[in-house]
Design a binder for these strands. Structure first.
Lengths: 217, 217
DNA sequence: GAATGCCCCTAACGGTGTTAGGGTGTCAAG
DNA sequence: CTTGACACCCTAACACCGTTAGGGGCATTC
């Protein structure tokens, strides 16, 4: 296959799943493409630019399946679905959240997604300003949650992951931290879909409450 | 000064502000301590463990100034203050959010903070389960927001930061993305305290709304 | 047929985290 | 007082990293 910057990024993204972010080297990517490392620099400026391109791909993966809300579907469901798509895109690649976090993606598909967010919220009765300040909160929550979740389940620690639930639960001193011990089930279950959905609901409820508060004056 | 793992972490955290996470090398830290790099390995297992220790210090920095809510202060204010403390701790070090993100900190001060969160929310009328699922959402939002903010203002790009607000605003096609263009001020102003406070308020409002929804049955 | 420019190569540079193995000083036990 | 153990630091070196310099083949264009 002909090599260009996008092919490199796609290859890197595929290799990422095998070796993780720390194991992703230029030499490895080049080898997979049947080429030597310096060749990559003909197509891309440096590794940071490659990481940006990878982040863009992940982001686009989430944004491109985004459609205007169908009739009858609420803005709450639509917004939550957008967050779920983004989360799924990150989860579908090892260290996906770390790759995405802190990369301001600039791509047409993403602009479209932003525009769609604004329009959907405004059509639902939000002011444009509320929409513009509100939906990034959903985004930031989603990124924050997923980066933590992916870190806890990371394979970086090998077999003896110090964040294994049973290990953490055993560490809590029930005398000094009774509520923590009592709620350890809920606390440790925060990773995964259930925990994500709970927080996501909170943010969406917050959006609705903020609008109602304004409407009441 | 006598060298031990905590002194190493403090030194590393101080150097971090000068050189950034990518510039933080074992040799540099050792030099600052008047010692050679391999010596560090007598005190710590590897660099990852050092980064964990640094993250713990930042986290503790935010948690140790945490006190039970004074009489007359609402749970909303208390919870928001806790988020602000955490954010300030991250912002007070270059790349602080990146260091903290994805490091499950295990330290007494943090356990105390968790317990205090649970107690405060429960005393305010939340069920323990609501508290245990709710406050991580605040935490995740805070981390997500701060990591993005710090990435955008990062010096990693040198003088030609592609995320400079005026550069981004100019990039938007007002014909195809009218709402985005119109709201660009609000969108780009999401970084900084104003944007953070807006989202933080949303999450807190969401918590309240979730409780009220339960109470109504 | 010459020249241009794309695309890949080899070689190498300066740096990284980390390990191996050896020294020196302190301090307790015999 | 001697001996040994142990804490703590060292030098040397390994394997690997991102990246640059410079050169060569090969197609397309004048």
């Amino acid at each position: 296959m002909k090599i260009n910057s996008e092919v490199i990024a796609r290859t890197a993204l595929r290799l990422l799943d095998d070796v993780g972010l720390d194991g992703l080297t230029m030499r490895l990517i080049a080898q997979d493409l049947g080429v030597r490392a310096p060749t990559l620099y003909w197509h891309i400026k440096n590794k940071q630019e490659l990481l940006d391109a990878m982040a863009t791909l992940v982001y686009v993966e989430a944004a491109e399946r985004l459609e205007p809300p169908r009739d009858g579907s609420s803005w709450e469901d639509w917004l939550a679905d957008w967050a779920r798509h983004l989360r799924q895109a990150m989860l579908s690649h090892r260290d996906g959240a770390r790759v995405l976090a802190g990369t301001y993606v600039n791509h047409e598909t993403v602009h479209r997604a932003v525009e769609l967010n604004l329009r959907t919220l405004r059509d639902a009765g939000f002011t444009l300003s509320e929409a513009a300040r509100g939906f990034p909160a959903v985004l930031h929550y989603t990124i924050g949650h997923t980066i933590e979740e992916q870190a806890h389940t990371s394979a970086a620690y090998g077999d003896d992951n110090p964040y294994a639930p049973e290990r953490l639960a055993a560490m809590i001193d029930a005398e000094r931290f009774p509520l923590t011990a009592q709620a350890s089930g809920d606390l440790l279950g925060m990773d995964g879909d259930v925990g994500f959905e709970y927080g996501l609901r909170l943010v969406v409820l917050g959006l609705r409450a903020a609008r109602e508060e304004r409407e009441r004056g």
